[in-house]
Design a protein around this nucleic acid. Structure first.
Lengths: 257, 257
DNA sequence: GTCTATACATAGATAGAC
DNA sequence: GTCTATCTATGTATAGAC
């Protein structure tokens, strides 16, 4: 369910991807450690000084239970409205036990938010370099975001909905990532324009609109699920939509207009 | 700042719009009562039995202060995290005074959510009929939504972010409006397809994507504001983006491809 | 490492004076 | 119609037994 990237051994994508140019959701999933415990192990290793439990296996399993409970309750009523008693019940751990895994409720929020941010940054950065041609770059970046949000949907949803509870410092980091992923798209569009394959447009607005489409996939997943739209269909539809707008017209034949 | 529609005298749009085919943000604003108190007066009249204050002028003014305070605090930390003491301070009313305007905190939430829903439904329904040709209908519906969310941005933002706190019954109403506005777009796309002006596409996906763009305008307003994008620019960009995808190709000249 | 029982703080809500 | 003072419930967090 969760994916993770060790800070020490960033995975190498190029070597592993058969067709860099055109990957689907199944290809994407093969790239990563999709064990449901991976992200929790990462959290354990990152927060070893504050987590009181020293047995890794046990700690990771309980962190998994805790995070899942947080996502489940928060998606219904929000993190602030979730009480520690709610969490205790849903995670099958006593109140006392919970506090062995985080200092306080606010700390729990930050642990989740930080881990989510690190993961997104690691994965998306890796996908910048998977293609060379502007059109392939654009497709690659759009798809990677959608597929990642599919694999780690609870983290994406939680990060978006609970962003308001962040400190000024953390909010700044969030905005920086937002601006960064937007800039990645803008750069690709500019490259394409300079090569004559994309039209001259307001690339900032195009990038914003692309991001809003990607976001819809994890904010309104129930809607797409009820219509039985899978990640590949959605990603293809989005790229098709975008391409119809940005691709330069094929050259006109003289005399005909 | 707020706009409102009386249940008893729905405004007539067709007669008032000079150019039905192509209105801009300034035109849109002229259509409505944009007095900052209008929505609050509507709330007062709708909830007269539960509001203890009988002096309309005073009640409406205080409701305005209360709602603005709610929007301001909630946008920073969420409705659940807002305490009645926060609200009391921000609205310049004592705790005791606040409870003359609503039964309890939950009631306050419902009053805002309900009023927001009624307003959106009234306005958007009115815009279905403003044009006849599919392309003009599509433009009209897209723009109306963006312009409305601009005029009543706090209500839109609040409604979206606090939807999780609703009861099962109210959630059902929200989903119905969502499905309804989506269906309005799907119907237009189908009409256009049958008339040969729009391509054959998955209209559900197209409508979803259009809605995600519109939503971005009120969810990420700070971003657009910092880039000094105004409602007209944004609306035009969105309609241009959509049209490049849905419009049928101009007929090809025989022998040339 | 986890539990139960409890301390302490803060929230929502109201009574009664003005 | 609004205020201050206060009641009561609920929430976070911890101490200490197992």
């Amino acid at each position: 369910m969760f994916i993770v990237f060790s800070k020490h051994k960033p995975p190498i994508y190029k070597k592993e991807i058969k067709s860099v140019e055109d990957f689907d959701f199944a290809d994407f999933k093969k790239r990563f450690d999709t064990s449901k415990y991976s992200l929790c192990r990462e959290v354990f290793q990152t927060n070893q000084e504050s987590i009181k439990i020293k047995n890794e296996k046990r700690a990771v399993e309980n962190l998994y239970k805790i995070f899942n409970a947080v996502f489940s309750i928060s998606s219904k009523k929000g993190f602030q409205a979730m009480t520690m008693r709610d969490l205790s019940k849903e995670a099958n751990l006593s109140m006392g036990a919970l506090y062995a895994y985080f200092k306080n409720k606010e700390d729990l929020l930050h642990i989740i938010q930080n881990q989510g941010r690190v993961m997104v940054k690691n994965v998306l950065d890796s996908f910048e370099a998977t293609a060379v041609e502007p059109l392939q770059k654009l497709r690659s970046v759009i798809k990677a975001h959608i597929f990642l949000s599919e694999v780690a949907r609870p983290w994406f949803f939680f990060t978006f909905m609970e962003a308001r509870n962040l400190s000024e410092n953390e909010l700044k980091e969030v905005r920086e990532i937002e601006a960064h992923t937007e800039k990645v798209i803008v750069d690709i569009l500019e490259l394409g324009e300079s090569k004559g394959v994309f039209k001259k447009r307001n690339h900032f607005l195009t990038a914003s609109i692309i991001k809003s489409m990607q976001q819809d996939w994890y904010l309104k997943r129930w809607k797409y699920k009820s219509r039985q739209i899978n990640p590949d269909e959605f990603a293809d539809y989005v790229t098709g939509f975008v391409e119809s707008f940005v691709l330069a017209e094929p050259k006109k034949i003289k005399g005909v207009h």
